[in-house]
Design a protein around this nucleic acid. Structure first.
Lengths: 221, 221
DNA sequence: TCAAAAGTGTTTGCTATACACCCATGA
DNA sequence: TCATGGGTGTATAGCAAACACTTTTGA
């Protein structure tokens, strides 16, 4: 038992994990095994350990559910409505993460819980206030495409400009002019040719590019 | 005594309260009366009550220290380094507030603690990690001037365009062209003439304007 | 009439957008 | 040789920045 002179809330981190699969923006949900909201889908998350930084807690949850680490992770917002959890006062510090498309080999589900990737249009009803959290994360993601190189975090080591363009088109749900997009990307000077080519199908091979600073997201404009 | 099956952190809100005084961007600090950091300057803040929303807690602290309410208040970031408070694990959800220049009549200091307004260039050493919090808030403020109407929240009911321009010049520490600024503001269509004039000094009176939606901060561009 | 701040347009450069055809490859 | 996606340049419009003089007032 842990006792305090005045009441303390519980603090969790929840993570909105985005990835692009099957030409769709998807996010990872887990099916709750226990009460409350047993059987409902929810964001991965858990309690913050007392000796653990918030971001470390988020990274731990991320690694637990996906097996990946070292990907883009950013604090989103802190949600603390008094009754968002029926058990006790729980304040959650929400994060969001972007998983490059090649880092998804195994869905290393730790304790045999059900996990699933859901497109933004096919989300089930979520536990707690997780729908609000997802919506906030989605807004942040879309907004950041406009003024940062955040979307580049979805790319694998090597990629073509057409693949990068597809990332923007999928998330923004809009067609982009090919020539203007390529001019724009190259002018940013954040990608360089790897020297390799991707040959697939009966057409001209595509130049492969890589990020100049893999882990850096820059504010642009 | 309050007891839990596993350890809980304490949760506080701290507020960075910005205002424009004496043609400077200033923020409100309080001098700590107790340990730790007794006698040091710190951000106003306090523990979140268990039945209280986070924003409500921030508003409560804000009203306690300044006597004002209903001003712009936005969640900034949550700081949770394990050792940021020497007593116990304390996670703080930081907010920032903007006080219009006419809402500062009395510094209604509740329990006779020392409070003071400090310019960004004359900040004392702060308690805890409050310097990091202040820096984060300042960056957010400066960034938001560029793509929102946030700065308008510093204005009183009626103001001249020159006064509004001064807000930008003070915060951005840059001279702005008068004609371009006025064209830009009027094109936003967020201010309207009040019909009144401000006459002060031996020169042409200035048209007074008011905000069309006083409480609304819009993303622009 | 003088000093002081208010108020007002035009030109120029840059950035964003629209738009169509040739290239390299495998089948 | 054909189908497929890769790759490229130019013209135009819209927005941002530079820039200087007239107006109104109180002393």
């Amino acid at each position: 038992m842990y006792s305090y002179a005045y009441p303390h809330p519980a603090v969790t981190t929840d993570i909105v994990i985005f990835s692009l699969r099957d030409n769709e923006l998807k996010l990872l949900l887990i099916k709750r095994k226990g009460e409350p909201f047993k059987g409902k889908w929810a964001l991965p998350g858990g309690f913050v350990q007392l000796d653990e930084d918030l971001e470390a807690a988020a990274n731990r949850e991320l690694a637990q559910e996906t097996g990946v680490s070292g990907v883009y992770l950013e604090q989103l917002y802190t949600f603390g409505q008094p009754n968002r959890d029926p058990r006790e006062r729980v304040i959650t510090v929400a994060y969001y993460a972007l998983i490059p498309s090649d880092r998804l080999t195994l869905t290393a589900s730790t304790d045999a819980e059900a996990v699933g990737w859901f497109g933004m249009d096919e989300l089930p009803k979520l536990a707690f206030d997780h729908e609000t959290i997802v919506e906030t994360a989605h807004q942040r993601l879309v907004a950041k495409l406009d003024y940062s190189t955040l979307a580049f975090q979805f790319m694998p080591e090597e990629f073509t400009l057409t693949e990068l363009q597809a990332v923007y088109e999928i998330i923004l749900r809009a067609d982009i002019d090919k020539r203007n997009f390529r001019k724009w990307v190259l002018a940013l000077e954040r990608v360089e040719e790897s020297g390799e080519y991707r040959r697939q199908g009966a057409h001209r091979p595509a130049k492969l590019y890589r990020l100049i600073n893999r882990d850096q997201v820059d504010i642009i404009k």
